[in-house]
Design a binder for these strands. Structure first.
Length: 219
DNA sequence: ACCCAGGTGGCCC
DNA sequence: GGGCCACATGGG
């Protein structure tokens, strides 16, 4: 059922191609450089509780000022970072978190295989969702990302009543092929679905999952 | 004037 | 374990 829903969403909306940083990456691209991985992670931090548009604008500022790298972030004056990321909101917190994260990456010699999920979770400003986003989209590791949309999604469709983060993550991971491309797309497709449909009701007329939801409820 | 956006940490009980 | 709250901008 979980994988079937994925295939319907993929067919309806097409591949979402996250993480489309500054729109320059090929959807099929798999082996990111270290600087690209760093950029993905910074994007994950900047978009916390913030629209991607606002986060991307901040990311673009950091890029055009040529400080979108681990060492540059560490060297850059804090107030300058704040100024550049204003559009992403929470700039007082996020500016410090960018520096903290850059320090973390430097301490691991920019080796994105050198740290674990637990290591990431110990970094201030990185919770489960951000940790999993970094692991999945930057490190290319199979961690399913759970966000508020994902919780509402499973509850409305009624495929699981899990509410704990790890429980929901486990639910998806045990019901899906262990394929990072599927994980990446599924998370993005749930966000896309939530933007387009079903904000208030489980099923709406033009929702691509309408028929499936109905049949699921009956049988 | 609300409410929301690709959350997290700190505090309280 | 859960329930609040602060954090802050930009768009509907």
């Amino acid at each position: 059922m979980v994988f079937r829903i994925y295939k319907i969403l993929l067919k309806s909306f097409g591949p979402q191609g996250w993480w489309p940083i500054r729109g320059i990456y090929d959807i099929k691209k798999k082996n990111f450089s270290k600087s690209e991985k760093f950029e993905i992670a910074i994007g994950a931090l900047l978009t916390q509780n913030t629209s991607w548009k606002n986060a991307a604008s901040a990311l673009e500022n950091l890029h055009s000022e040529k400080i979108l790298s681990c060492d540059k972030i560490l060297l850059c004056d804090l107030n300058r970072i704040k100024h550049l990321i204003i559009s992403s909101g929470y700039y007082n917190q996020k500016s410090v978190r960018l520096k903290t994260f850059a320090g973390f990456i430097k301490s691991h010699k920019s080796d994105y295989n050198a740290f674990s999920r637990e290591d990431l979770l110990r970094v201030n400003g990185i919770g489960k969702e951000t940790a999993d986003s970094i692991l999945l989209y930057a490190c290319q590791k199979p961690f399913f990302v759970v966000d508020a949309y994902t919780k509402r999604f499973i509850h409305r469709i009624g495929i699981s009543c899990a509410s704990d983060y790890d429980e929901i993550q486990n639910f998806f991971m045990k019901n899906l092929p262990k394929d990072i491309e599927v994980y990446k797309e599924y998370h993005a497709l749930i966000v896309e679905l939530s933007k387009r449909h079903c904000r208030k009701t489980p099923i709406c007329k033009d929702c691509p999952l309408g028929d499936l939801c109905a049949s699921f409820k009956k049988g």
